[in-house]
């Protein structure tokens, strides 16, 4: 804080004033910042520490404060290895892997494709862009409920096609324990890919036209142009989109609840569902806290290296 303050010329000038008003003005930015600083300290970092603490107790319905060791983590670890029949935790983390990789991967690919197609100076771009972007404006609950009806074999797509005469059509993923997680991917991708498209579109518009012209003069085909020049230039966008999608994937909770209510036999659970279920419905606060800490460590494993590399580049 102070290092920034002393280099500020305005600040140095005001420091010479010693009136009350001057002092107050001096302190103004700090006074304004203080509440949000305090709130963040308490409600983000304070509660992270609190959750970590609870995960080492044997808290059930209510927090208990005596540290009793790592039993919650041991249980989670045992459940991690329990694949047949799958424990709820095993289902949650494997679903996280499937959902996370497909959701991020398809969103990136689809977003990039849409952005490239929209960038071909086509007519009506102004109409198409908001159409693709619009799903992002919906909440996960709305997305979930709408897709739930659409994918329900007795209500939506399958029923409609049967009425139209295609009676052999069969699509019951949402009712199938092995495929229900993929319906979550479908709904998630539908919602987020337009947003990723907007990010890539902004990136494409930012590329210097001279580079492209030079490449075209050198005889590069448009495939080569994208493959060798444009996509590598979009690297920072990939990174930002990845971070945005990754954290959205990890905290997806409402989508699973609205779309599948947990799926047949709990087969659509993600770790966040697990955490909520155990903490609030099953009164196993310690286990819930331990799973929350594991989720936090997963997110950190992704975010920290990113922040580190970003800050290092800035410092250079």
């Amino acid at each position: 804080m102070n290092t920034i303050a002393t280099t500020d010329p305005l600040k140095t000038r005001s420091r010479q004033r010693s009136t009350l008003r001057g002092k107050l003005q001096d302190a103004l930015p700090q006074i304004v910042l203080a509440p949000s600083f305090l709130l963040t300290i308490v409600f983000v970092y304070g509660f992270i520490v609190w959750t970590g603490y609870l995960s080492l107790t044997n808290s059930k319905t209510f927090p208990s404060y005596a540290i009793t060791g790592t039993r919650a983590y041991e249980r989670l670890w045992r459940w991690t290895l329990e694949s047949d029949p799958p424990s709820s935790w095993y289902t949650s983390i494997t679903n996280m892997g499937i959902f996370g990789s497909l959701y991020i991967g398809i969103c990136l690919a689809l977003g990039l494709l849409l952005a490239i197609l929209l960038d071909q100076k086509i007519r009506g771009e102004g109409v198409l862009r908001p159409i693709f972007l619009y799903p992002m404006a919906l909440s996960f609950i709305v997305t979930g409920v709408a897709w739930k009806w659409f994918l329900d074999p007795g209500l939506g797509l399958e029923q409609t096609l049967h009425h139209m005469g295609w009676t052999s059509f069969h699509f019951d993923w949402i009712k199938n324990k092995d495929f229900v997680i993929y319906t979550v991917v479908i709904a998630g991708v539908w919602q987020a890919s337009g947003f990723v498209m907007a990010m890539f579109l902004a990136g494409l518009r930012g590329i210097d036209g001279e580079i492209m012209k030079a490449a075209q003069i050198d005889g590069a085909s448009s495939f080569q142009l994208y493959r060798r020049i444009i996509i590598p230039l979009l690297r920072p966008i990939f990174l930002s989109a990845f971070i945005v999608l990754a954290h959205m994937a990890i905290k997806s909770y409402d989508l699973v609840v609205a779309l599948t209510s947990g799926g047949p036999g709990g087969s659509a659970w993600l770790p966040s569902n697990f955490m909520y279920e155990y903490t609030f419905k099953r009164n196993e606060m310690a286990v819930g806290s331990a799973s929350a800490i594991i989720m936090l460590m997963t997110i950190s494993a992704i975010i920290v290296p990113y922040l580190y590399s970003e800050l290092k580049e800035k410092a250079r």
Binding site: K60, P85, P86, S88, K177, P264, G265, G266, S267, E277, K281, R282, N283, E284
Partner: peptide, 22 residues
């Protein structure tokens, strides 16, 4: 029984109905 047990029970029954437990 307590909620933790009741929910564990529901898990098992549901997994049996839906075929995770064979």
């Amino acid at each position: 029984a307590a909620p933790a047990i009741a929910n564990a029970y529901k898990d098992v029954v549901s997994k049996f109905v839906h075929g995770q437990i064979k």
